[in-house]
Nucleic acid binder design. Structure first.
Lengths: 326, 326
DNA sequence: AGTTTTAATCGAATTTTTAGATAGTTAAAA
DNA sequence: TTTTAACTATCTAAAAATTCGATTAAAACT
């Protein structure tokens, strides 16, 4: 019983266009002028449509044709179908220009989320037809997702061992700092802490679930987390110290809930880690991914400027040192 | 800048059908078999579609074609458009068989609403494409709406003076009874009331806003209402007696909030008034209105059977008389 | 290696679409 | 009332498209 499906091809989009144009312009002749076709074509086309639907669409008893009730009922449907055709054509045109129909991205958790949100908001307006698939992973799990093909591009702070099928590109730096809860013993004394002081307390660090199990942990006294938010919660609950992205802890530092630590062996208070975009060599990015990267870098720079510079951070370190000396 | 609209006719529904069928059947040849057309037709059609959209839809490097990402993106849109075409054709077929695209009805307020709701529920399932327009009026306002053309059909208890352009048809009877609040003075004495007793108290009756102002009111002591619900509210508030449809007051009679009155001059306790359907001679009803009337009569009869018969009503009258004699 | 299934291509026949000319009708202008 | 302008339906011939059948080459299965 697929007969109606086979009869679909009897109906023509052109006929629907005629119906809409005639109803819009008010007469067959006007429609002919508007479509730059002969009047007889319009007349024949409407007649054919009426014959195929077995319904009279226009009442021709007057000089200008007027829609019958049936015509009034079917006109909006025809209009909607034409609109959808336009959308299909528009989408096809975008695809023809290399625009991706769907973009999948893996984000490292250390990527500041506001930057992603700003970038996607901007891109969504420019490419409304694109479907976005956003994953979040940590460390080597990002490169793994790219390699296995489940994501087209990744943003990460961890550059994997050079593999021939991967292409990486620097996109900016993220500052990392040592922090501990203000109530933690480490925050009570001199915050220019020694390696031994650090080793004496638990380190809260990130687990690399994708990499091989790390038998020789740098710090035997470390707890591992697969989620930065959870990790930060433990830090705030005075469970240990951690080495975290500045943008993640800066609000807490300002609120006085966290204290900066400066290991004696470290030359600088904060350490900049480069961020990279990753993709397969074969998965050449289309305009959507290219413009996403541009938008990301733009918003990332603006975001970074809101964070304290190293000089400002030093200032913050000194004032916190003074207050804790009391 | 209506160029894209002019290019719509380059695309063909048949091409979209080919896309969908090939994607569904798995190969050009299978699609050809399914559509009962030659394989070269399918091949040519898909090639034309790809050329017009400027996008490759199928990857032919293997034996069987597989959808490209672009094809995957456009396939659901094509499918949806074909579905809408089917809907349009289905609606056209209904219209061709005389099915109304919209039905407008005026209801007299004395028509029991549950019957209307049941009828419309039944019809909506059978004619999902029909739009319903329901008005509610009273007395001569119903015939007026039909005459002026703002409604196609009406259900009323008031048969207008025979007019040549109107056609009426009996559809059942509604029993009317005299009622008064149980706390009203009329309910205290003998409820086989005299005409003089009735005239001594206020009558609450229906106003005919469409008819000419009724200068000579039957009862000088009457208040008029344009809404039955409001009227009933006044009756329940002991403001006077009224002559109302039994179905409207029966719940209140059972609850003991209202008392039946039986004027001495009346031979029967309740008076049956015929209900009529009205329409213009020129507005010949299609299948929707015809089946609506059938459904209405069916549900109206079922509804009437739930109401007390005259014998049951007499029983009720006697028991209420006994209790009020105490 | 041989067989089957498949898609692209080409040419010819068919069907559909289109424009132009004409006739007949309606509505507005004179 | 007459005249004029604008409109639709219809017919014909030409142009355009669709379709099929046959053929070729490639892919997958036996």
């Amino acid at each position: 019983m697929q007969q109606p499906l086979a009869q679909i091809n009897k109906l023509t989009l052109d006929q629907l266009l005629l119906l809409v144009t005639v109803a819009d312009s008010g007469s067959f002749s006007a429609a002919a002028r508007q479509l730059d076709r002969s009047q007889s074509t319009i007349s024949h086309g409407i007649a054919t449509l009426e014959a195929e639907l077995d319904v009279q669409l226009f009442d021709r008893s007057r000089r200008k044709p007027v829609l019958t009730p049936a015509g009034q009922h079917l006109l909006p449907q025809a209009l909607q179908i034409l609109t959808q055709i336009r959308h299909l054509q528009s989408d096809a045109q975008r695809l023809a220009q290399g625009e991706e129909s769907a973009v999948s991205i893996v984000l490292d958790m250390i990527i500041p989320l506001p930057v992603i949100i700003q970038s996607l908001t901007e891109l969504q307006a420019r490419f409304p037809a694109v479907r976005w698939l956003i994953h979040t992973e940590m460390l080597s799990a990002i490169a793994q997702r790219i390699t296995e093909g489940s994501c087209q591009m990744g943003l990460t702070g961890m550059l994997p061992r050079m593999k021939s099928h991967l292409i990486s590109q620097g996109i900016g730096k993220v500052d990392f700092v040592y922090v501990v809860s203000t109530q933690h013993p480490l925050a009570q004394g001199n915050t220019r802490v020694s390696e031994e002081d650090l080793a004496a307390y638990t380190q809260l660090e990130v687990a690399d679930r994708a990499a091989a199990p790390q038998v020789p942990l740098r710090n035997p006294q470390s707890w591992q987390f697969a989620d930065l938010t959870t990790l930060l919660g433990f830090v705030l609950a005075h469970q240990g110290w951690a080495f975290l992205p500045l943008h993640l802890v800066w609000p807490e530092l300002q609120a006085g809930r966290l204290t900066l630590l400066w290991p004696q062996r470290r030359e600088h208070l904060c350490t900049g880690f480069s961020m990279y975009s990753l993709r397969l060599v074969s998965e050449r990015p289309g305009p959507v991914r290219q413009q996403f990267m541009q938008a990301f870098q733009k918003h990332f720079q603006a975001y970074s400027r809101q964070l304290p510079s190293e000089a400002m951070l030093l200032e913050h370190f000194k004032t916190q040192d003074l207050s804790s000396d009391h």
